[in-house]
Design a protein around this nucleic acid. Sequence first.
DNA 1: CGATGACTTGACTGCTGTCAACGTGCGTGG
DNA 2: CCACGCACGTTGACAGCAGTCAAGTCATCG
Lengths: 246, 246
Amino acid sequence: MSPSGEEPTISCGDCHVRELCLPRGLSQEDLTQLDSRVCHRIAQRRDVIYRAGDPLRFLYVVRSGSVKVAIGDAAGTEQIIGFYLPGELLGLDGLNDHRHRGTARALETTSICEISFDELESLCTKLPSLNRQVERLMSKELGAEQELMLSLARRGVEQRIVVFLLNLSKRWSQRGFSATRFTLTMTRDDIASYLGMTGETVTRAFVALRNSGLLKVEKKNIQILDLDALIERSGSAEIYARVFAR
Amino acid sequence: MSPSGEEPTISCGDCHVRELCLPRGLSQEDLTQLDSRVCHRIAQRRDVIYRAGDPLRFLYVVRSGSVKVAIGDAAGTEQIIGFYLPGELLGLDGLNDHRHRGTARALETTSICEISFDELESLCTKLPSLNRQVERLMSKELGAEQELMLSLARRGVEQRIVVFLLNLSKRWSQRGFSATRFTLTMTRDDIASYLGMTGETVTRAFVALRNSGLLKVEKKNIQILDLDALIERSGSAEIYARVFAR
DNA sequence: CGATGACTTGACTGCTGTCAACGTGCGTGG
DNA sequence: CCACGCACGTTGACAGCAGTCAAGTCATCG
């Protein structure tokens, strides 16, 4: 269980999420330039990657593992505002005032790449294709989050859970993993906080979906037994039809 | 009541929201360049400004009046995703796939400025200060919307209404109008759709806030009688303390 | 003057949060 | 190695908030 890294010189060129991440579309030469500016670290479960209020110094990418971002409520309670999977850009919250709005924590043993925000910007002015990819990723992350928020907004508990699961399914399959079998690295309470309900209600929704034969739920392991029926039940079938068609 | 325009050559330099809008920080010379590329139109209540699915050709700014943006739900029902006040950038939905996600309609007689997206982009490459202002506005619009969504997410009906009212109050005061007296140009059902509740519930929340002595509600006219108490009741007092301090 | 849309109010129902008890697995320390 | 504490998940009982349905008022517009 040696947690620290004796990994043989991590490089973007070898990364399995490079096609989703910054390197996409970069020449070998440009890639080397980017590579030299990226730092790596391993975070254990519950480790903080950045904290709310911190100045926005780095952008992060999840290399493997998963991360949650939470903001502190008025009381001590915290609310989850996002989960991040491998290849996803982390740290864009608070692009506005250049301070992180939330606190990012690893949900499991997680490998993180970080690059200085300033260095990335200056590198972007030199490498147009990197600039394009950064813009694409940023607008994708921001847009996707907004879209999800919207489809979560005005729905019943079960539909929110379904939308959440379909969203995860889509993101895992985009990463080359199964769209119908995946593991929830977050707790029920995390999901509840994210979806605006209670842990108990999450449990009950899972039970209901299992009893309907749509899902197999075994602790953290989810298997989607009937994807079409699930999409049907999301209440926004046409959206997902479109998404999955791509 | 002549609705169509005999307005004496509208220009950005004379506009009362120029300090919130694209012209901000531009030299007289640059302003002229921008001005020549902006078109104006007047929309009546319920007029469509752009429609969901339309290719993203223009960016719009509300010059006076107000606008709502709605997306069609699975059934014929529509859901409001945003309201826009004078000086606010309109049409950023669907920056992703270059198609508008929602349909924008005027809530009252509204004056709209439009500028071709392509022309704005090319102009930005020539005028750095315009480019900076565009970036600032975009990140502000996107960030603000996200922030609002978050503060609306996990709250009871009354709190959501309060947050909504405080948000409007802030935006009106930023535009030089009263922070405590304003008119709701949208219907109760519009508010309800936006906040994820029903029209009846909006009414009841208004009644409750009136009975508590925090609000004076007279049809569409709102008067905030006790701003501090309202902020207190929003459940995110510290956020608004910060906002109003600016 | 009637039609229509917007708003209000009331009665009822049901969903979902709250509280509580309990089970289970994991890690820590004796 | 075992015992314990703790985090997490599940289940049940119950209450309250908010959605639904329905009726009715009011202002506006043709």
